[in-house]
Design a protein around this nucleic acid. Structure first.
Length: 271
DNA sequence: AGGTTGACCTGGACGC
DNA sequence: TGCGTCCAGGTCAACC
């Protein structure tokens, strides 16, 4: 499901609803894959903690926790492909594939639901906290951005998807930013010209900003903390449009595989 | 070390 | 209606 704009929408929505709340109880499903930290450690860290802040780092939702005067623990939620983080009244029926429930002091519940179980829950306690695997794409400068790709032999699309380089960009926004910058997805990252890098940096930041503004892209089942869909899918120029005509030049969009992911581009607009 | 591929899951869409 | 196949917003371990 979720790339940077969707994760940010969810994190902001959950923050607005639960910041300042105390977690009074935690239930976990015990299913495989979902738990990156031991479940007992997650339950112990969360139970009795106060949620100070909910925010996004890369594609991860970070809950900053405190207990008494001590702070520093964080609950990390990665949504994988199909994960949802919902804030519900307790009487709302529990969705299928619910893997964790945090009961709040006011009786509402934060529910983690994930049919495919590619999502991950964990807790971190280190000082400094979670900073993510790569650079933040929404604030990186043009100069820093250009440096990331120097000498890289992999395709620019694969580089954009690599979370240890830039974190937060996924398949939709990689394709959409490359289209807007007029760059072939298979071009070697290290061979981008100065002009291409100077187009890609703002193209990526504009696409992400616009998508955040519209609440993300709802391709199939993505919803925010209230169960509301986003609207950026209406702005997609290439993602999900293979075989259809380019909105800019009317030639048919091509479908290829780059870095193991379906990739759609316009052979005429992207040279 | 950098780069590529397949495995991990469920469910929805499509073809026969 | 039902069954098989393919595909999906993401990682990661295991391989070159």
């Amino acid at each position: 499901m979720p790339e940077l704009p969707e994760v940010e929408t969810v994190a902001n929505g959950v923050h607005a609803r639960v910041a300042g709340q105390r977690i009074v109880g935690v239930w976990t499903s015990g299913k495989s894959l979902t738990f990156k930290s031991p479940e007992a450690e997650i339950v112990e860290t969360l139970t009795g903690a106060r949620i100070e802040k909910v925010r996004r780092v890369g594609k991860t939702i970070v809950m900053d926790l405190s207990r008494g005067k001590t702070s520093g623990s964080q609950f990390l939620v990665h949504l994988g492909m199909t994960g949802r983080l919902l804030v519900s009244a307790p009487e709302v029926p529990m969705p299928l594939h619910t893997h964790a429930v945090l009961s709040l002091a006011d009786s509402r519940e934060v529910r983690f639901v994930d049919p495919r179980r590619f999502g991950k829950l964990s807790v971190v306690k280190e000082e400094g906290g979670y900073t993510g695997p790569g650079k933040e794409p929404t604030t990186i400068s043009a100069g820093e951005f250009a440096k990331l790709f120097k000498g890289r032999k992999l395709a620019i699309k694969a580089a954009l998807l690599n979370q240890s380089i830039l974190h937060g960009v996924g398949n939709i926004y990689a394709d959409e930013s490359l289209f807007r910058a007029g760059i072939r997805p298979r071009k070697q990252a290290g061979k981008l010209t100065k002009a291409e890098l100077a187009r890609l940096h703002p193209a990526l930041q504009e696409v992400l900003a616009k998508a955040i503004q519209l609440g993300g892209s709802s391709v199939s089942d993505y919803v925010d903390a209230d169960g509301v869909r986003g609207f950026f899918q209406l702005e997609h120029k290439v993602y999900g449009r293979a075989g259809e005509n380019c909105k800019d030049c009317t030639s048919p969009l091509k479908n290829i595989v780059v870095g193991g992911r379906t990739t759609v581009y316009c052979p005429k607009c992207q040279r």
